[in-house]
Protein backbone atom coordinates (compact mmCIF):
# COMPACT_ATOMS: atom_id res chain seq x y z
CA UNK A 1 0.00 0.00 0.00
CA UNK A 2 1.21 3.45 -0.82
CA UNK A 3 2.13 5.85 1.94
CA UNK A 4 0.53 8.87 0.27
CA UNK A 5 -0.89 10.81 3.18
CA UNK A 6 -4.06 11.99 1.48
CA UNK A 7 -5.30 8.42 0.92
CA UNK A 8 -8.36 7.81 3.09
CA UNK A 9 -8.10 5.28 5.87
CA UNK A 10 -11.49 3.84 6.76
CA UNK A 11 -12.12 2.70 10.30
CA UNK A 12 -14.66 0.63 12.18
CA UNK A 13 -18.07 1.91 13.20
CA UNK A 14 -18.74 1.85 16.93
CA UNK A 15 -21.80 3.50 18.51
CA UNK A 16 -20.79 6.51 20.59
CA UNK A 17 -22.50 6.19 23.97
CA UNK A 18 -23.08 9.88 24.66
CA UNK A 19 -24.16 10.93 21.15
CA UNK A 20 -27.54 12.67 21.18
CA UNK A 21 -28.55 10.95 17.94
CA UNK A 22 -27.17 8.23 15.69
CA UNK A 23 -27.51 8.57 11.93
CA UNK A 24 -26.53 5.54 9.85
CA UNK A 25 -26.20 5.44 6.08
CA UNK A 26 -25.19 2.10 4.54
CA UNK A 27 -25.04 0.54 1.11
CA UNK A 28 -25.22 -3.12 0.17
CA UNK A 29 -26.31 -6.25 2.06
CA UNK A 30 -22.98 -7.00 3.73
CA UNK A 31 -22.93 -3.45 5.11
CA UNK A 32 -26.55 -3.85 6.29
CA UNK A 33 -25.75 -7.05 8.17
CA UNK A 34 -22.70 -5.44 9.75
CA UNK A 35 -24.71 -2.42 10.91
CA UNK A 36 -27.36 -4.71 12.41
CA UNK A 37 -24.69 -6.65 14.34
CA UNK A 38 -23.02 -3.47 15.55
CA UNK A 39 -26.17 -1.77 16.82
CA UNK A 40 -28.19 -4.70 18.19
CA UNK A 41 -26.39 -4.81 21.59
CA UNK A 42 -27.21 -1.10 22.02
CA UNK A 43 -30.97 -1.52 22.20
CA UNK A 44 -31.58 1.41 24.56
CA UNK A 45 -29.95 3.83 22.07
CA UNK A 46 -32.06 2.68 19.16
CA UNK A 47 -34.82 5.15 19.90
CA UNK A 48 -32.46 7.85 18.60
CA UNK A 49 -31.22 5.92 15.57
CA UNK A 50 -32.10 6.67 11.96
CA UNK A 51 -30.96 4.16 9.34
CA UNK A 52 -30.82 4.74 5.60
CA UNK A 53 -30.18 1.60 3.55
CA UNK A 54 -29.24 1.42 -0.11
CA UNK A 55 -30.49 -1.98 -1.25
CA UNK A 56 -28.17 -1.98 -4.26
CA UNK A 57 -27.74 -5.76 -4.48
CA UNK A 58 -31.47 -6.48 -4.16
CA UNK A 59 -31.24 -8.28 -0.85
CA UNK A 60 -34.54 -7.86 1.00
CA UNK A 61 -33.46 -10.15 3.82
CA UNK A 62 -30.57 -7.91 4.81
CA UNK A 63 -33.03 -5.01 4.83
CA UNK A 64 -35.33 -6.92 7.18
CA UNK A 65 -32.43 -7.47 9.58
CA UNK A 66 -32.07 -3.69 9.78
CA UNK A 67 -35.82 -3.16 10.24
CA UNK A 68 -35.84 -5.71 13.04
CA UNK A 69 -33.45 -3.54 15.09
CA UNK A 70 -36.40 -1.34 16.04
CA UNK A 71 -34.66 1.95 15.19
CA UNK A 72 -36.69 5.13 15.16
CA UNK A 73 -36.62 5.02 11.36
CA UNK A 74 -35.33 2.41 8.90
CA UNK A 75 -35.63 3.57 5.31
CA UNK A 76 -34.76 1.67 2.14
CA UNK A 77 -33.62 3.01 -1.25
CA UNK A 78 -33.07 1.17 -4.54
CA UNK A 79 -29.83 2.82 -5.74
CA UNK A 80 -26.81 4.79 -4.54
CA UNK A 81 -28.17 7.96 -6.08
CA UNK A 82 -31.55 7.75 -4.29
CA UNK A 83 -29.82 6.78 -1.04
CA UNK A 84 -27.54 9.81 -1.20
CA UNK A 85 -30.37 12.21 -2.08
CA UNK A 86 -32.07 11.16 1.13
CA UNK A 87 -28.75 11.33 3.03
CA UNK A 88 -28.39 15.00 2.04
CA UNK A 89 -31.95 15.82 3.06
CA UNK A 90 -31.43 14.23 6.49
CA UNK A 91 -28.03 15.92 6.97
CA UNK A 92 -29.64 19.34 6.67
CA UNK A 93 -31.89 18.54 9.65
CA UNK A 94 -29.23 17.09 11.96
CA UNK A 95 -28.29 18.84 15.20
CA UNK A 96 -25.13 19.13 17.27
CA UNK A 97 -24.44 15.97 19.22
CA UNK A 98 -25.38 13.70 16.33
CA UNK A 99 -22.96 10.96 15.24
CA UNK A 100 -22.89 9.83 11.62
CA UNK A 101 -21.99 6.27 10.58
CA UNK A 102 -21.20 5.36 6.98
CA UNK A 103 -20.75 1.75 5.92
CA UNK A 104 -20.42 0.35 2.43
CA UNK A 105 -18.12 -0.05 -0.59
CA UNK A 106 -15.20 2.32 -1.25
CA UNK A 107 -16.88 4.39 -3.98
CA UNK A 108 -19.93 4.89 -1.74
CA UNK A 109 -17.71 6.06 1.14
CA UNK A 110 -15.85 8.39 -1.25
CA UNK A 111 -19.04 10.15 -2.30
CA UNK A 112 -20.91 10.10 1.04
CA UNK A 113 -17.97 11.54 3.05
CA UNK A 114 -17.64 14.36 0.50
CA UNK A 115 -21.36 15.14 0.87
CA UNK A 116 -21.03 15.26 4.68
CA UNK A 117 -18.04 17.57 4.37
CA UNK A 118 -19.90 19.90 2.00
CA UNK A 119 -22.63 20.21 4.66
CA UNK A 120 -20.15 21.55 7.20
CA UNK A 121 -19.90 18.28 9.13
CA UNK A 122 -16.42 17.74 10.53
CA UNK A 123 -14.73 14.49 9.61
CA UNK A 124 -14.51 13.65 13.30
CA UNK A 125 -18.33 13.48 13.44
CA UNK A 126 -18.34 10.79 10.76
CA UNK A 127 -17.40 7.18 11.40
CA UNK A 128 -16.67 5.03 8.38
CA UNK A 129 -16.17 1.35 7.62
CA UNK A 130 -15.40 -0.32 4.32
CA UNK A 131 -17.87 -3.11 3.67
CA UNK A 132 -17.99 -4.35 0.09
CA UNK A 133 -16.02 -3.72 -3.08
CA UNK A 134 -12.93 -1.52 -2.98
CA UNK A 135 -13.51 -0.10 -6.46
CA UNK A 136 -12.83 3.64 -6.33
CA UNK A 137 -14.42 6.89 -7.37
CA UNK A 138 -11.94 8.67 -9.65
CA UNK A 139 -11.71 12.16 -11.10
CA UNK A 140 -9.97 12.58 -14.44
CA UNK A 141 -7.66 15.54 -13.85
CA UNK A 142 -7.77 16.46 -17.54
CA UNK A 143 -11.50 16.73 -18.30
CA UNK A 144 -12.68 16.79 -14.60
CA UNK A 145 -15.16 13.98 -15.28
CA UNK A 146 -15.99 11.66 -12.34
CA UNK A 147 -15.82 7.93 -12.93
CA UNK A 148 -17.70 5.64 -10.53
CA UNK A 149 -16.57 2.18 -9.34
CA UNK A 150 -13.12 1.98 -10.89
CA UNK A 151 -11.73 -1.45 -10.01
CA UNK A 152 -8.28 -1.27 -11.57
CA UNK A 153 -5.60 0.95 -13.04
CA UNK A 154 -4.84 2.06 -15.72
CA UNK A 155 -8.25 2.83 -17.19
CA UNK A 156 -9.46 4.87 -20.15
CA UNK A 157 -11.45 7.91 -19.02
CA UNK A 158 -15.08 7.26 -19.89
CA UNK A 159 -15.52 10.98 -20.63
CA UNK A 160 -12.45 12.10 -22.64
CA UNK A 161 -10.75 8.80 -23.45
CA UNK A 162 -7.32 9.64 -22.01
CA UNK A 163 -5.56 6.61 -20.48
CA UNK A 164 -5.43 7.25 -16.74
CA UNK A 165 -3.24 5.97 -13.96
CA UNK A 166 -5.29 6.06 -10.74
CA UNK A 167 -3.09 7.54 -8.05
CA UNK A 168 -3.49 7.19 -4.28
CA UNK A 169 -3.74 10.99 -4.03
CA UNK A 170 -7.29 11.62 -2.75
CA UNK A 171 -9.50 14.69 -2.40
CA UNK A 172 -12.04 14.59 0.43
CA UNK A 173 -13.74 17.64 -1.07
CA UNK A 174 -14.33 15.90 -4.39
CA UNK A 175 -14.66 12.44 -2.84
CA UNK A 176 -12.38 11.03 -5.50
CA UNK A 177 -8.94 9.67 -6.32
CA UNK A 178 -6.89 11.39 -8.99
CA UNK A 179 -6.65 9.92 -12.47
CA UNK A 180 -3.77 11.28 -14.54
CA UNK A 181 -2.57 10.46 -18.04
CA UNK A 182 -0.33 7.38 -17.91
CA UNK A 183 1.14 7.40 -21.42
CA UNK A 184 1.84 11.10 -22.06
CA UNK A 185 5.56 10.44 -22.48
CA UNK A 186 5.08 7.21 -24.46
CA UNK A 187 1.69 7.21 -26.20
CA UNK A 188 -0.01 3.81 -26.21
CA UNK A 189 2.54 2.27 -23.87
CA UNK A 190 0.38 1.14 -20.91
CA UNK A 191 1.62 -0.62 -17.77
CA UNK A 192 0.05 -3.95 -16.82
CA UNK A 193 -3.44 -3.70 -15.30
CA UNK A 194 -3.55 -3.83 -11.50
CA UNK A 195 -6.66 -4.33 -9.37
CA UNK A 196 -7.11 -2.36 -6.15
Amino acid sequence: MSDIKSRPIWGRIRPVAHAARHFVCCEGSSAARHVAETFSPNAEALKQVTILYGNTDRNEEAGHTLDALGAEASLHYPTRQTLLISFKAHLKRLHMGAQIYLCGPEAFLNEATAIAESHGVLKEAVQTELCGANARRVQCVHCKGLIENVAYTPIACEHCGVNLMVRDHYSRRLGAFMGVCVDAEAPGDLPARESF
Binding site: V16, H18, A19, A20, R21, L91, L94, H95, M96, G97, A98, Q99, H119, G120, V121, L122, E124, A125
Partner: peptide
Protein backbone atom coordinates in the same frame (compact mmCIF):
# COMPACT_ATOMS: atom_id res chain seq x y z
CA UNK B 1 -27.56 22.95 13.68
CA UNK B 2 -24.76 20.46 12.98
CA UNK B 3 -22.32 23.04 11.57
CA UNK B 4 -22.22 25.13 14.77
CA UNK B 5 -19.03 26.14 16.59
CA UNK B 6 -18.89 27.33 20.21
CA UNK B 7 -16.32 29.74 21.66
CA UNK B 8 -15.92 30.37 25.39
CA UNK B 9 -13.74 32.73 27.38
CA UNK B 10 -14.01 33.42 31.09
CA UNK B 11 -12.90 32.08 34.46
CA UNK B 12 -11.22 28.65 34.34
CA UNK B 13 -14.08 26.96 36.21
CA UNK B 14 -16.66 28.28 33.80
CA UNK B 15 -14.68 27.23 30.72
CA UNK B 16 -14.31 23.72 32.12
CA UNK B 17 -18.03 23.47 32.89
CA UNK B 18 -19.12 24.64 29.44
CA UNK B 19 -16.73 22.27 27.64
CA UNK B 20 -17.73 19.33 29.83
CA UNK B 21 -21.46 19.98 29.38
CA UNK B 22 -21.10 20.24 25.62
CA UNK B 23 -18.99 17.07 25.39
CA UNK B 24 -21.52 15.16 27.47
CA UNK B 25 -24.18 16.16 24.93
CA UNK B 26 -22.13 14.69 22.08
CA UNK B 27 -20.50 17.91 20.83
CA UNK B 28 -17.07 17.23 19.36
Amino acid sequence: RIDTHLYVCGPEGMIGAVLNDASALGWL
